[in-house]
């Protein structure tokens, strides 16, 4: 029996020794897996965006684009996020919605901009979506809901229009897991604080939208698909209870008014 136990232990030890030795090699780098993943993300992002281009009305006002870009740029610079990797798109639609696509595509609906009381509230939502991008939640959600095999098929051009549309619908109108949403909310607060913007308007925005949900029935996708907005507003407010900081608005009131005016003209 002793011989058997000894031989068994030797086999187990050899197996684990082999596994641990092989673990020392950086296979991910060796097989360029990260590069492959990035390529898949790029192809998926472009594929989804092209589908969107054919179905939605895109903003054509350069002033609106410039102001939104300046907000995103300010947040990115303050948080050491590569601004060049973020592609901001403004969709002309009444729906209060914003979401991220793979490869850094950030889509903001004009309905969301119009419904935001001020630039800090809008910045909060932008920060929330940037957090989803930076924390790789977008790909995680896609893999979980669609599967890596289907995603790879899509990038090979054999996914079928129906699957692409359904996947795009998943991304634009469903929330992430509760834990991922909370992580993105808190990361958004960090981003806002780093950008010296007050995070409380973001919490207030969530609270206000939840009360207006009935009034704006069908147009508040960003709220109705996400976890309870009151609960979110509460933990955001709790999280940012830091010693008072010299907050400053992310853009001037004048620029904010200009944004709203240009948007209404469309």
């Amino acid at each position: 029996m002793k011989k058997l136990i000894f031989q068994g232990l030797v086999i187990i030890a050899l197996f684990f020794a082999l596994w641990f030795s092989l673990r020392a090699v950086n296979w991910v780098k060796l097989f360029k897996i990260e590069k492959l993943t990035n390529n898949t993300q790029k192809k998926l992002g472009d594929l989804f965006w092209e589908t969107f281009l054919h179905t939605e009305k895109i903003n054509s006002n350069p002033e609106v684009e410039r102001i939104i870009d300046s907000i995103v740029q300010k947040i990115c610079v303050a948080n050491s996020i590569n601004y060049a990797s973020i592609q901001v798109h403004i969709i002309i639609k009444e729906e209060v919605n914003a979401f991220a696509l793979p490869n850094g595509h950030l889509l903001i609906y004009s309905g969301l901009i119009a419904e935001s009381k001020n630039a800090d509230a809008l910045s909060g939502v932008i920060c929330h979506e940037l957090a989803h991008i930076q924390l790789n939640h977008v790909m995680q959600k896609l893999i979980k809901q669609v599967g890596l095999s289907v995603l790879t098929t899509m990038t090979n051009g054999s996914g079928g229009a129906e699957i692409i549309k359904k996947t795009l619908h998943t991304l634009s109108s469903t929330a992430f897991d509760r834990s991922l949403e909370k992580e993105a909310d808190l990361k958004a607060v960090d981003y806002l604080i780093q950008a010296k913007a007050n995070p409380l308007p973001f919490a207030m925005f969530l609270k206000n939208l939840s009360t207006q949900e009935k009034k704006l029935s069908g147009f508040t996708n960003w709220i109705s698909t996400h976890p309870d907005p009151i609960e979110r507003a509460k933990y955001i407010a709790d999280y940012c209870k830091t010693p008072s900081m010299p907050y400053q608005s992310i853009i001037s009131n004048q620029t904010w008014s200009s944004l709203q005016n240009n948007l209404h003209e469309q």
């Binding site: 197996f15 082999l18 596994w19 641990f20 092989l22 673990r23 090699v25 950086n26 296979w27 991910v28 097989f31 897996i33 995680q140 893999i143 979980k144 599967g147 890596l148 095999s149």
Partner: peptide, 23 residues
């Protein structure tokens, strides 16, 4: 789990695949 969940390909996984391949 890598194909259908949020699990990703890691050095640990590839090392395990090579180990069982050898075995």
């Amino acid at each position: 789990s890598i194909l259908f969940t949020a699990e990703t390909i890691t050095n640990q996984f590839i090392a395990y695949v090579f180990t069982i391949l050898i075995v």
